[in-house]
Design a protein around this nucleic acid. Structure first.
Lengths: 195, 195
DNA sequence: ACCTGGGCTTGACCTGGGTTAAGGCGGAGG
DNA sequence: CCTCCGCCTTAACCCAGGTCAAGCCCAGGT
């Protein structure tokens, strides 16, 4: 077992027999990415995903009109991939970019489907992951519905303290649904109020 | 089998043997709700869900500060329930209210868990449902990130034509994340532009 | 026919965030 | 050491949407 810590983490979502984990590692490949390198680009087939071993990524949705918005940041222990597109068997509409020199463990979805055939535990895990993702998206939806940009900012740093200093401000703005100019204003407003 | 149409619809998500469906119907209870009646209220245990047989519902999130926002509308063939809270084993934070005289088929989650023990098909179905919900929430997130209120409105009616005339305007506004005043203005603006 | 109330509209005014454009500042490379 | 570039800030101006308040329309009840 090459990654016991990762195994423990995943096993908290659904019971995973160690021998199944060994099978999973057999089909996984490690990959290193330089800062700014893309794990996935728009138009790619959404046929693989990865676990972040080291580094931070941003998932960028590039709209037809050229606007960039950020769907999520992902750090150590989290999954990267065009999940929604994978489920719908569509080509990826998002770019996934390393914000630091990073290191990931890559799975092909076809290999993962093989694992699912072999043991129900993988299917259970997939369900948990889907449910987890849903809960997070719903939380985010609710924040858009009832919080101001400033309140969303505060909550963002409460919920993602580990991203401090690792993601550029403009990306935080794009995640919150505002421009970097607005974010800068909000921050100076708070600074003034605090002093 | 009391609800063959419903069965067919669900079976498109994941294969369901008819005999399993019969077991499901055995534990389900029909319930009728008057207009404005609540299927679930904030604080209730999130231990049951239902399929809408007839009618329309709104899922209302009541924020601590008293603001109301609408998470979703649900009509015939769709599921109602405090799904996120159920997954997190939290009491419901949403009210689910009938907008018309309605008729639903209710399942207790404990009964459903029994079914899951009996046959994997239910677990597969649950996974599909979670994935489906995720895809929808992600779509909504993306709309908040890159569309104006007016564009969201247009998209809303494109995607939910069957709700026309069945949901009050103020609720559509709350769903879009704006006030009914703003919605009214947007509509008159469009009327003017169209003429 | 008259009231009543709920839901929609309209207007006046305010505010937050978008847009554009002009700096400031610190780090990497010449 | 200077320059350039990427990133952040600030300012000026505009507009969408919020808030408050007054009205309108119509369906239901008496």
């Amino acid at each position: 077992m090459r990654f016991p810590k990762l195994f423990e983490r995943l096993a908290t979502l659904a019971p995973l027999p160690p021998e199944e984990w060994v099978k999973a590692e057999a089909v996984a490949k490690e990959q290193s990415l330089a800062k700014r390198e893309l794990f996935m680009r728009p138009g790619d087939a959404a046929d693989r995903f990865a676990v972040v071993l080291q580094g931070v990524f941003r998932g960028v949705r590039v709209s037809p009109r050229g606007g960039e918005s950020i769907k999520a940041f992902r750090a150590e222990g989290e999954l990267i991939g065009a999940y929604a597109e994978m489920l719908q068997r569509l080509p990826s509409m998002t770019a996934i970019e390393a914000l630091e020199p990073s290191h990931v463990l890559v799975f092909q979805t076809r290999d993962f489907q093989q694992l699912e055939q072999g043991h129900v535990c993988w299917e259970r895990l997939a369900r948990r992951v889907a449910e987890q993702h849903f809960v997070l998206k719903e939380r985010r939806e609710q924040e858009f519905l009832e919080l101001s940009a400033e309140e969303r900012l505060v909550k963002f740093w409460e919920e993602h303290p580990h991203l401090k200093g690792r993601v550029p401000q403009r990306d935080v703005a794009a995640y919150l649904g505002i421009t970097e100019v607005a974010l800068s204003r909000i921050m100076s407003r708070r600074r003034k109020r605090a002093e």
